[in-house]
Simulated assay, not measured.
Amino acid sequence: MQKRDNNNTRRQFFRSLGGQGPIRRPPWTGDDFTERCVRCSACIDACPEQVLFHGGGGYPEIRFEHEGCSLCRACVDACEEPVFDTRRTAFPWRARIEAHCLALADIHCQSCQDACEWRAIVFSPQLGRPPRPRLNLDACTGCGACQTQCPNNAITMTSEETAHAE
């Protein structure tokens, strides 16, 4: 087991050198994902949003390139292994609105609010300027819907610990 942990740490180190972010796994999975997953692709095939992909070593990864995760549980229902635990939080990350957000530059844009089914991003009216986004981290699921719709790529997903610290 120690060897696998070292391989994952090493893989993440080299990903970061190449400018790639952390490996993101399907919802409701934990640190033991690579120990439990048999790489059968059932969750990937079942995903209606097609946000699950074959990643390193054939393990499923989630990428928010065109869609966010609707948390529909199709991946959970399709998996025959004890990989998913719906009692835990779906994702360990939350949205973060970066400084280059169009609305923060006084350009009218509310794409992220329109995409957020959970109402985690709302725009408060501002006197004499376009509304500005306000992020409710407690309502954010980390589903990535806002990230895919942002025209300026100003939304990133960050770990829950980092998000609450800011």
Rank of each mutant, 00 (worst) to 15 (best):
C109K: 10
A105H: 15
R87G: 14
D114E: 11
F84N: 01
A78D: 00
V83E: 00
D85N: 14
R96N: 08
L104G: 02
T86A: 06
A99G: 07
V76Q: 12
P92V: 04
Q110P: 00
V76E: 08
T86N: 04
A78G: 04
C109E: 10
P82D: 06
L102N: 13
I107G: 01
E80Q: 13
W93S: 12
C79V: 00
A103C: 11
A78T: 03
P82I: 03
E98S: 11
H100T: 04
A99V: 07
C75I: 02
D106E: 11
P92N: 12
Q113W: 09
W93K: 03
F84D: 02
A105E: 14
R94Q: 08
E98W: 10
L104R: 02
D114Y: 10
V83G: 03
R88V: 15
L104C: 03
L102Y: 09
Q110R: 08
A90S: 03
I107F: 13
R88G: 15
L104W: 04
S111E: 11
I107T: 11
Q113L: 07
H100N: 14
F91T: 01
A90N: 01
S111D: 12
R96L: 15
H100E: 10
A99D: 15
R87F: 14
R96I: 12
D106I: 11
A90F: 07
D85R: 06
D85E: 11
H100S: 05
S111C: 14
P82R: 01
D106P: 11
V83F: 02
P82N: 09
E81N: 12
E80L: 04
H108A: 11
A78Y: 00
A105V: 00
C75A: 06
D85F: 09
R94G: 04
R96Q: 14
L102S: 09
Q110F: 07
F84W: 08
V76D: 10
F84L: 06
C109G: 12
E80Y: 05
E80W: 05
E81M: 13
H108Q: 13
D114I: 04
C109R: 03
P82E: 09
L104E: 04
P82M: 00
P92G: 02
E81P: 00
A105K: 10
R87H: 12
V76N: 13
L102I: 05
Q113F: 05
C112A: 05
R96A: 14
A95M: 15
R96T: 06
R88N: 06
C75S: 02
F91S: 01
P92M: 07
R87D: 14
D85G: 02
T89F: 05
C79K: 00
C109N: 13
F84C: 10
A103K: 02
H100G: 03
E81F: 08
C109W: 06
A105Q: 15
T86C: 13
P92W: 12
A99R: 13
A90L: 10
R87A: 15
F84G: 04
H108M: 13
F84A: 09
I107D: 07
R87M: 14
F84Q: 03
D114P: 01
A99P: 09
A90H: 04
V76T: 08
P92Q: 03
Q113C: 15
T89S: 14
D77W: 02
I107K: 06
C79P: 05
F84H: 02
A90R: 01
F84I: 07
